[in-house]
């Protein structure tokens, strides 16, 4: 055998597996209603907290959730970050704000984009509202909401975030 032959030290191994995935009941119900332009969470029968998106259970109590509660597309900023790197597969250009938002009527936050805002003045307690895509583009996806934009409403005090009544925060 030749001494100077080039040794193999690495190989490329393509591993592509096909799946047919079916969303869980709670997710399916949620996304079906998002397709209609509605945000519908589920209330825990034990602790009364409203989960959005619903997962079919209250993770805290470990009980199934079935009661549906429509919540507003107005939210309060619970926390946020300004991101300077692109999201794989997402066209949004950095820097952009992603925030944990608690919709009026729910007790838990979900992550979404914030836009039409001054990145430097985004803050906890800030009021925001969904900017939906045109109805004809709605699909089974949260990005039916293009992003959230600031509302001209007073801030929710820090200690009340996630605890305001179902009807939403009104001054």
């Amino acid at each position: 055998m030749s001494e100077e032959r080039e040794m193999i030290t690495g190989i490329e191994v393509p591993i592509y597996l096909k799946y047919h995935f079916t969303a869980g009941e709670a997710t399916a119900r949620f996304l079906s209603q998002v397709r209609q332009g509605k945000l519908v969470g589920q209330r825990c029968p034990s602790c009364n907290n409203v989960y959005l998106p619903p997962r079919g259970s209250c993770a805290a109590c470990g009980v199934a959730t079935t009661e549906e509660v429509e919540v507003a597309d107005k939210c309060t900023v619970e926390s946020f970050t300004i991101v300077y790197i692109p999201i794989p597969g997402n066209p949004i250009q950095p820097p952009y704000v992603i925030a944990n938002l608690i919709p009026d009527g729910a007790n838990i936050s979900f992550i979404h984009l914030l836009s039409e805002c001054d990145n430097d003045t985004v803050h906890r307690g800030q009021r925001v509202q969904a900017v939906w895509k045109p109805q004809e583009e709605w699909d089974y996806a949260m990005d039916n909401i293009r992003y959230f934009k600031p509302l001209d409403e007073p801030d929710v005090p820090s200690e009340s975030i996630g605890k305001v009544p179902v009807t939403g925060w009104e001054v």
Partner: peptide, 16 residues
């Protein structure tokens, strides 16, 4: 509930 199903591929070309 509507049944939501979709094909997807879990794939990567590993560099071993």
């Amino acid at each position: 509930p509507e049944l939501l199903s979709q094909d997807f591929e879990l794939g990567f070309t590993y560099t071993r």
